[in-house]
Nucleic acid binder design. Sequence first.
DNA 1: TAGATTGTTAATCGATTAACAATC
DNA 2: TAGATTGTTAATCGATTAACAATC
Lengths: 207, 207
Amino acid sequence: MTTKPIPDIVVGRLPIYLRALQRMAQEGRRVTSSQELGERLGISAAQIRKDLSQFGEFGKQGTGYNIEFLAQQLQNILNVDRVWDVAVVGAGDIGSALARYQGLNNRGFRVAMIFDSDPKKVGTKVGAFVVKDSAKLVPEVSKAGIVIAMLAVPASAAQTVADQLVEAGVKAILNYAPISLNVPQGVRVQYIDPVTHLQRMTYYLDR
Amino acid sequence: MTTKPIPDIVVGRLPIYLRALQRMAQEGRRVTSSQELGERLGISAAQIRKDLSQFGEFGKQGTGYNIEFLAQQLQNILNVDRVWDVAVVGAGDIGSALARYQGLNNRGFRVAMIFDSDPKKVGTKVGAFVVKDSAKLVPEVSKAGIVIAMLAVPASAAQTVADQLVEAGVKAILNYAPISLNVPQGVRVQYIDPVTHLQRMTYYLDR
DNA sequence: TAGATTGTTAATCGATTAACAATC
DNA sequence: TAGATTGTTAATCGATTAACAATC
């Protein structure tokens, strides 16, 4: 018997739902509805119900969803009911900001180490971390059993570093370098390039 | 007569094509094909041709696409054949990294000013900029005619600042705060939240 | 010319929405 | 109970892919 896989586009919306739910919980709210959630997020109520129904039945007719319960369920589904260690590669402005970023807290992630190849940076402190030498990346990351990395090196170095991360056993890369990476099957990459986002908006701007 | 609008999902791929073309140009390449481009990007050749054909005929049968020409055309389409001034709001780690980020250069954008509400930060330097007081955001941004902003303030302040940006005439917001924003019709928002990207990947990770 | 690759059409595939019975 | 809202099905809508004539 084959279970049909969940569409990745659905998976991609779950973190958005979770984020909104956690915010609502913080606001002291106890229940919500697909309609209210949809209005906050600009997503149709039907879509939210459909998405959630892929994973189970989390609501009550007439009442809606218990916020804390649904958030808990989403954390389970997304495997963030634990804390993942993350390696940051590149200790420039972006890498340093990531190493200090408090926004990872309570959301399933923690920076565990940061690397740079520049001898002037190796050994210096960035936030709570001492910058390690990129030359040691493969052994250090494998030894720590780290499977998630944030890549914040120049585009020219990104593919080489990505190859090393893969060699070290990393399965998920969040890439801040403005370049598409080639990785083997089984390794996931997500891209963050502010410029592509900006250009997507300037298309609609006049002048 | 009504021309049917280009799907936003197509618009969203154009910056990726442009980025790859500019990289190829930098590598000294002169022509490419939908197939080669697709292999680099993990997108089907048919899709690339279909996307481009929405805007015109840019290739030659048997030969492919002239890289420099196609890049130029995409810059025109995306309105980045000019330089847009961008306002950064928030001078914490992320805002500071953005203000110093060199990756905007030659891609259609330039940071023009940075704001923060913390009196300890106002007046200090971040990269080439003196941090301005957020209290002056609306008049300063309107006066400068700035229509694009990058938002890097805490989630708790993000909606208020977004409202001010809208009031100041901003039409495109790149939001780094982990919260969904409500903005009026005609204003675009793009989101960058590393955690949502990471969670989208941990769904597929075991353990 | 022969080979390659575009631009486009039609077919397929997948995602979203509308609607409503079930039920809290 | 009456009202509200879920979970789900079927219908619609939109996006992707396959295929190929046109042509460089």
